[in-house]
């Protein structure tokens, strides 16, 4: 079980109001989170919702152990993430970013094999077992046929599935995804949602996914955490949390929420914009 206990990360170092000079400086000026408490049970799928700048990505980075909380703790099965070495952490928690841009052109299999990093010694080369695990991960995401292809030549949906395969090759029990469908067309969005549901069902993979896509969250998540300005404003089972009222409070949009029988899950239909309060 992954849990955060009143985690705060503001990284406002006082007077840091100057705008970043360069694009990558922006990552140091992301929105913070304050006093966030949440539990992710083993085998659950949890969605993190919230408007832009509400701290979703920061929360994911805290849950992944990539950021250390300024106060509060993040624990995995009772152990503080801060006490775990990076490779050990990576063997338990894998992360899939929104988009991946490579500096150099690797093959699909090479990308999947990168997931084996935390399992190998400093000078160790991948053995047949690592290759088998990587290929199995590619097979699970339906990308094994692409293994010899160069990553740069893939479509957005193929890339995202290969990156998920690379995370699967880490053999972690928890998968964190940051807006995995944000840059994908409808077909690929559907593929990724189906893939995650299957991975959860067949491998009992615990999944935490930050997303703007309410229907994607409704179809996939057992429970929802809503963030606004770095604080949790609602949390609980999807059916109780994803309501017209909470959506209006979160996004300032009046929406209809009803169970869709053919889809088999809640459906959100946005109706009109109102002022947020």
């Amino acid at each position: 079980m992954l849990r955060a206990d009143s985690v705060t990360y503001l990284h406002d170092r006082g007077g840091g109001a100057a705008p970043p000079l360069l694009p990558d400086a922006g990552r140091f000026a992301q929105p913070g989170v304050q006093g966030v408490t949440l539990r992710v049970e083993r085998g659950h799928v949890v969605g993190i919702l919230g408007p832009n700048g509400s701290g979703k990505t920061t929360l994911l980075r805290l849950l992944a152990g990539m950021l250390r909380p300024e106060s509060g703790t993040v624990t995995l099965n009772g152990r503080d993430l801060a006490s775990l070495a990076r490779p050990a952490l990576a063997r338990s928690i894998a992360v899939v970013p929104q988009e991946t841009h490579l500096a150099f052109d690797y093959s699909v299999l090479e990308i999947a094999l990168m997931g084996r990093y935390p399992h190998l010694g400093t000078f160790e080369l991948e053995g047949p077992r690592d290759v088998a695990i990587a290929r199995e991960a590619l097979a699970a995401t339906g990308t094994l046929a692409l293994e010899r292809r160069s990553f740069a030549t893939l479509s957005g949906g193929e890339k995202q599935r290969v990156v998920i395969a690379s995370a699967l090759a880490q053999q972690a029990e928890i998968l964190l995804l940051d807006e995995p469908t944000a840059s994908l067309d409808l077909g690929y969005q559907f593929d990724v949602a189906a893939l995650l549901a299957r991975l959860n069902r067949e491998r009992e993979l615990t999944i935490v996914v930050a997303t703007h896509d309410l229907n994607f969250a409704a179809s996939l998540c057992r429970s929802i955490v809503m963030l606004s300005e770095g604080r949790v404003v609602a949390a609980g089972p999807t059916g109780d949390t994803l309501t017209s009222m909470s959506i209006q409070a979160l996004y300032g949009v009046v929406a209809d929420v009803y169970p869709h029988h053919a889809a088999g899950h809640l459906t959100v239909v946005p109706l009109r914009r109102v002022r947020r309060d």
Partner: peptide, 23 residues
């Protein structure tokens, strides 16, 4: 001699490298 494997992961992204266990 120590660098090549972490450098491969840095080519993904610094965050992606960190999440795969790279310091």
């Amino acid at each position: 001699a120590w660098l090549p494997r972490p450098l491969n992961l840095l080519s993904l992204d610094t965050d992606a490298a960190a999440s795969r266990g790279v310091d």
